[in-house]
Simulated scan of single mutants.
Amino acid sequence: MDPGLGFAVPVVMAAFGVLFLAARKLGAARESLFWGLGFLLSAAAFGFPATDVLIPTQIIAFMADAFFALAFFSYACAVVFRFGGPRLFRARIALLGVGIVAPAYGIFVAESLPAETLASDLTCALQLGFALVTARCWPARRIDRGLLVVLWVVVIQNVLLAASVQLTVGDARPEAFFTTDYSELMFGGALLTSLVFAILALSGTVSDLVDGYRRDALVDPLTGLLNRRGLAAIAGRATAGQAGGVICCDLDRFKQVNDTWGHEAGDRLLVAFADLAQDVVGSSGVVSRTGGEEFVVHLADMPARHVRATAESLRAAMRRFDWSPTGIAGHQTASFGATMRAEAEPLEDALRRADRLVYEAKRNGRDRIEDDLPSQRLSLAVVNR
């Protein structure tokens, strides 16, 4: 076998392993840890034969096969975390055990290189194939579909290697492993598939990481609603021919809630109101938390009567809501400001008008809706309890 190939495979795999672990350190999903461990274990397995001048051949073969088994166990775990499906941890541990014991039998008992390589290839293929078969569903993203295809190629590659043992290994002794055609096929195939496999898996991991950072930048972590930046990204600039409504909501006496029942109760109040607002608005608009106890409902391409009705529904739903599960006694109210967003008007302009209307509602007694909607002006007040 070409010495350069024997050197390149472990180095490439180790490099990818480090990249996956670095991605995990930056916040990538859990499967990146298992991808990284799998590539590092594979790198060690491919690198063990280079130590034949220091360690007995049988020990080298056993360690390499054990590391391959552990690598494919890690790959299988990554598949489960990436694509879903049952954990079946005991079954996977059992397959790992077989993947270590079966090649060891070929090394120490049968003392046969064909038996060892056959057992190692088939048990590794079995571990990864079992994870792929139990995957929950065919993924929607092209990267993930490509990754699944390449993983199946790895399984098939191992099966074909096992099928070729009689031709590519023959009666060779373990110490003659690098003189066999099998070693050329094994290292060459591993270099090719590992490159494609790692690039696709790493691309999916990095894509998820970037999406996560983008989501964190646009979503309020407490309520799960869009934040102000997220609202601007979704609503943006109204297009020509499209008007809509903006409703600003500010919870009344929120500081008093925090002072009386504690900040945890205040957080539960915010979460409960976010859920309530989403239930009321439904698919007709977007609810966001723009700061503290301030929320904004954006209703794209909606007439004034719908904007007014939504504000009324929110105010009424809040007064009817049972707040006791949040640890807060009594009714909670909010003040609302509703305005229409003109065609092609920047969102910030409409938000400033709605915000001024909220403060007008606060000055006029709270638990009110103030608006500058084009039809009859709405100014509803209730007796505070």
Rank of each mutant, 00 (worst) to 15 (best):
V271T: 14
N158M: 15
S207M: 10
T134Q: 15
A243D: 11
M186H: 14
F177E: 09
T239E: 15
F254N: 08
L33G: 05
K255Y: 06
G285V: 07
D52K: 10
E312W: 05
A69Y: 01
R24V: 00
I328G: 06
S288A: 15
E116H: 12
D367V: 12
C249F: 14
A190P: 01
F89L: 13
V9A: 04
A29G: 07
L113K: 02
A140C: 11
E360Q: 15
S335N: 12
D171N: 15
G38V: 03
V286H: 12
G291P: 07
D259S: 03
L122T: 02
R87N: 11
L202W: 01
A311M: 01
I107H: 01
C137K: 15
P325Q: 03
Q376Y: 08
D144G: 13
L231I: 05
F130E: 05
D171T: 13
D52N: 13
S324D: 06
D2Q: 09
L200R: 02
F34G: 01
D367K: 08
G188Q: 04
L33V: 12
D220W: 01
M1P: 13
V280F: 04
R385W: 14
L314I: 02
A50N: 04
A342T: 07
T326G: 05
A71G: 10
V18T: 12
W35V: 00
A71K: 05
E293L: 08
D121K: 09
T260W: 00
L41V: 03
T180G: 10
E348H: 09
H306V: 12
Q58S: 13
L161S: 14
Q242T: 10
A274D: 08
A354D: 04
T51Y: 11
V257E: 03
H306L: 07
V383Y: 10
F89Q: 13
P221V: 03
G38C: 03
V18I: 15
W323L: 08
F254H: 08
A91V: 14
A198T: 00
W138M: 13
S288V: 02
E370D: 12
D372I: 04
L5D: 05
A300T: 10
V98Y: 02
D211L: 11
G337H: 09
L378N: 09
D121Q: 15
V109H: 03
G129W: 03
A232V: 10
R308C: 09
T193Y: 06
V383S: 09
A28M: 02
R353C: 03
L200G: 06
A361Y: 07
A44C: 07
A15S: 15
A66C: 11
I93R: 02
V307T: 14
A342R: 10
G241C: 05
A172I: 05
D65Q: 11
D181T: 14
I328W: 06
L96E: 00
E293T: 08
W138G: 07
F108L: 06
I369M: 04
S74L: 06
R320F: 08
R229V: 15
T290S: 08
G365W: 06
Y182S: 09
F108W: 14
A162K: 04
L33N: 09
W35H: 00
P325G: 03
R87G: 05
S375E: 13
Q278F: 06
G230L: 03
S313A: 12
G327M: 03
D301M: 02
Y75E: 01
L200V: 02
R229K: 08
A66V: 08
L37K: 02
T57H: 04
V9H: 00
W35D: 00
A78V: 01
I107C: 00
A66I: 01
